[in-house]
């Protein structure tokens, strides 16, 4: 038992502690000059712009599927009129943020884990340090900031393409017009759904980037270590994100009690 504690629990806790310290450092360094603006922009391009096709396509598909499901359940109550609003509410509050979070942790988390892992094992990170560049600021903070900036934007894109998808499905059934669908969709959404739902994805972005960066920067063992960093990034980031979401949802209910219906 003591052996188990010493060989499993303690290292595990120590690892957790190191991640927390790493995350804290990322948060602190983000607001401390000098700012790596160009590199952050490059990361926004990688994380945000290049995720757009994936997010838009996924959002569109999710919108169609959700619309069909919503129709199936609301039809029973004769509440078809609520389909756009129910879809939008679900998207804005939870589905949009979570789907974007999972997609980004898959695409971007793996990317960051692999890229930083490769840089680590080929000594590029040391090379950065050797040319007097703060590798943490240059590599980690830029990615964390880019993810935190890109996530809410991607979420908004997902929500809108989701609603467009919902409209596609709806107009196929009822021939509803786009503008009236859009207005109906937003008829029940409140600021207290929209703002926390969208902005909480900044937290998701933070978690994804910090986790993947940590695992990448601490990769070891050559090519295999790089692959490991990539897969672990996706898994760990997704799980952490979903767990954090539970806490965030409670927190949002606490701060905006009227959203807890």
């Amino acid at each position: 038992m003591r052996g188990f504690v010493r060989t499993v629990i303690v290292p595990w806790l120590a690892q957790g502690g190191r991640v927390v310290v790493f995350a804290g450092r990322a948060l602190r360094e983000m607001f401390r000059p000098p700012f790596e603006v160009r590199e952050t922009a490059r990361q926004v391009y990688e994380v945000g712009w290049r995720s757009l096709p994936l997010i838009a396509a996924a959002g569109y598909a999710v919108g169609i599927v959700m619309s069909m499901h919503t129709r199936a359940s609301l039809e029973r109550f004769g509440a078809e009129a609520l389909i756009p609003a129910a879809l939008a509410l679900a998207l804005v509050r939870e589905t949009g943020p979570l789907v974007v979070g999972l997609l980004v942790s898959g695409r971007v988390g793996a990317g960051i884990g692999a890229e930083l892992g490769a840089m680590k094992v080929t000594e590029q990170i040391d090379a950065l340090e050797a040319v007097a560049v703060d590798s943490f600021k240059f590599l980690v903070v830029t990615r964390v900031a880019a993810c935190m900036l890109a996530m809410p934007i991607l979420t908004v894109v997902m929500n809108f393409t989701g609603i467009v998808g919902g409209w596609t499905a709806e107009s196929a059934v009822s021939g509803m017009g786009f503008e009236s669908y859009f207005r109906a969709a937003f008829s029940l959404v409140q600021f207290t759904d929209y703002l926390p739902g969208t902005l909480k994805t900044m937290v998701f972005g933070f978690i994804i980037a910090v986790t993947a960066s940590y695992l990448g920067v601490h990769a070891s063992g050559g090519t295999q270590g790089v692959g490991q960093a990539a897969t672990r990034s996706v898994v760990t980031a997704s799980v952490l994100m979903i767990a954090t979401n539970v806490v965030l949802v409670r927190l949002i209910f606490f701060v905006f009690p009227e959203t807890a219906e």
Partner: peptide, 11 residues
């Protein structure tokens, strides 16, 4: 990047 950020904010 500019299009992404500005477009996102507009949306």
């Amino acid at each position: 990047v500019g299009a992404f950020v500005i477009g996102g904010l507009l949306l």
